[in-house]
Design a protein around this nucleic acid. Structure first.
Length: 157
DNA sequence: TTGTTGACCGAGT
DNA sequence: AACTCGGCCAACA
């Protein structure tokens, strides 16, 4: 009797342990994951946070580039890391408007990674940005410089 | 563990 | 003007 009850409990535990295992299509970046052990992870977290914070500041109808974000978040030479961070952006909460981030030429290089290949373009067009041939038209006008907004650094002597 | 691969960028052929 | 080549740094194989 008691033994039977224990067996049931044991099986139940096993099942419970297993079921939630399906939530991990792609492993998250360390900072998002947790990695409490390394103190370096803290810096990474700041990095991710900074990137997300900047991206969230992009005004509707504007767009910026990976490089600009990288520079503004203190890692000028690591634009790739921004792209890497974006890959996990859809998990971010609150959400990050990743569709407003393109490469330095205004190319929608990340479109492929959205729910549908055309979603990014549709979102942009929905905000009044013209996209032709996978590229933002008049990118110079649409471009928004992250460094220009946050802190009025100072114009120019 | 070492090597390859990116939602990139800028300088140098 | 088109193309290649490092540099960046985390994730995978």
């Amino acid at each position: 009797m008691v033994i039977a009850a224990e067996m049931v409990a044991c099986i139940a535990r096993t099942i419970m342990k297993k079921s939630p295992a399906k939530k991990k299509p792609v492993s998250l970046p360390p900072a998002v994951k947790k990695t409490v052990k390394a103190k370096k992870a803290k810096e990474d977290e700041n990095f991710i946070d900074r990137v997300y914070a900047i991206v969230r500041k992009i005004p509707r109808g504007r767009a910026t580039s990976y490089g600009a974000i990288a520079e503004s978040s203190g890692i000028r030479l690591s634009a790739r890391m921004v792209g890497w961070a974006m890959h996990a952006a859809d998990r971010a909460d609150p959400p990050v408007p990743a569709h407003r981030v393109v490469n330095s030429k205004g190319l929608l290089t990340g479109a492929h990674h959205f729910a549908t290949p055309t979603l990014m373009q549709e979102l942009l067009e929905n905000e009044g940005i013209k996209v032709v041939d996978n590229q933002i038209q008049d990118f110079r006008t649409v471009f928004w410089d992250p460094a220009g907004e946050p802190k009025s650094k100072k114009k120019k002597p």
